[in-house]
Write a protein that binds this DNA or RNA. Structure first.
Lengths: 145, 145
DNA sequence: TTAGATGCAAACGGTTTGCAAACCA
DNA sequence: TGGTTTGCAAACCGTTTGCATCTAA
C-alpha cells in the first residue's frame, strides 16, 4: 500500500534528461536533498548551503519540481514545503506535525471517492489536494511525550 | 448532501459573543463579507474597503477566522484565501478555478475513508486537508468557453 | 565559443508590528 | 474614563528579477 523511501530518486538524471546543465551548485543541492527524509522549505535548504546563492536554490527547486522529482505540499499552518518525490504515480502525503517526516501513500480509494463525489456536485473536478497530518509515532519528539 | 449558502452567518454576533467590540470598521467588513459567495484574499477585500486601514482588515479577518466564522482555504497555486463559513460542522470545499466560487460540502465518506487509512499507517492522524478544484459550470468564465 | 547558469542586490507582494490618536463600553 | 481598536508607516518574510559575470558543454 505504501511506497516507502525508494533509495535512489536520481535528481541529477532528471536534470540531464531535461536538457539542463549539471553544475556544481545543482550537484550540491541534489546531494543534500537525497539525504532528506523530511519535508523542507527552500529557505531552510538555502541556510544549509551557504556557498550557494539563495536565488539559485529557489531556481533549482523550481526546476526539480517542474521535472516531477520533488513535490510541493501544504503544511498545517497554510505555508508550503517541498519533499523528495519517491513515487512516479499520483499520490498523497502524510506529514508528521512533530518532526516533519513526510511519507507518500497511494490509496486507490481516495481516487474512487473523488470520482464518486464528482457525480454529486455540479461542474467538473479538475484537481484536488489531500494532505494528512499525523503524529508519526517514531520520531524523538513524539516519543518524548 | 450539500450545505448551500445559509443566508445568515452572523459575524457581528461572533464578535459580541467573543467579547470584542463592535466598531464601525468591523461592521463594514462584516457587511461586505456577508454578501460574498466566493473565496477572497484579504488584500482584495481591503481594496474594496478603502476607508478601512489594511492592517485592520487583516486583524479582523484573523479574528473571524479564530472565531470559526470564516475559513481559510488553499488555492490551486499554493496561496490561500478565505471564505465565509456557513456550516458549523467539519466540512470541505470546492473552489471553482475559473470564477473562484466556493461551495462547502460534507461527505461522511471522506471521514470514513480517513479513518480507514488511519488503520493502515503508523502513527495517528491528527488532522487533514482536502480541497477539490472544479469548473463550476455555472460561471460566465466557464460558459464563455 | 556561447547559451545557459550563477550570485548579488534590489524589488516584490502579502502580511505583521509599533505607536500615537481615536473610539466604544 | 480606560482599555480596545484604529490607521499609518515602517519592518518583515519568503520569493522573484535584472544584470553583469562565470562556466559547462
Amino acid at each position: 500500500m505504501f511506497a516507502f523511501q525508494n533509495p535512489h530518486p536520481n535528481l541529477i538524471a532528471a536534470l540531464e534528461s531535461g536538457g539542463y546543465r549539471v553544475t556544481a551548485p545543482r550537484r550540491a543541492i541534489a546531494n543534500l536533498l537525497e539525504q532528506k527524509q523530511e519535508g523542507f522549505s527552500v529557505e531552510a535548504l538555502s541556510d544549509e548551503l551557504p556557498s550557494v546563492g539563495r536565488a539559485t536554490v529557489y531556481r533549482t527547486i523550481k526546476l526539480f519540481h517542474a521535472a516531477g522529482v520533488v513535490c510541493k505540499l501544504a503544511t498545517i499552518n497554510g505555508s508550503h514545503m517541498y519533499s523528495l518525490c519517491r513515487n512516479d504515480h499520483h499520490h498523497h502525503h502524510t506529514v508528521c506535525v512533530e518532526c516533519g517526516a513526510v511519507e507518500e501513500f497511494r490509496v486507490d480509494a481516495v481516487e474512487r471517492l473523488i470520482r464518486q463525489i464528482s457525480e454529486d456536485i455540479p461542474g467538473e473536478i479538475v484537481s484536488h489536494h489531500l494532505e494528512l497530518y499525523v503524529n508519526c509515532g517514531a520520531c524523538p519528539e513524539t516519543k518524548g511525550k
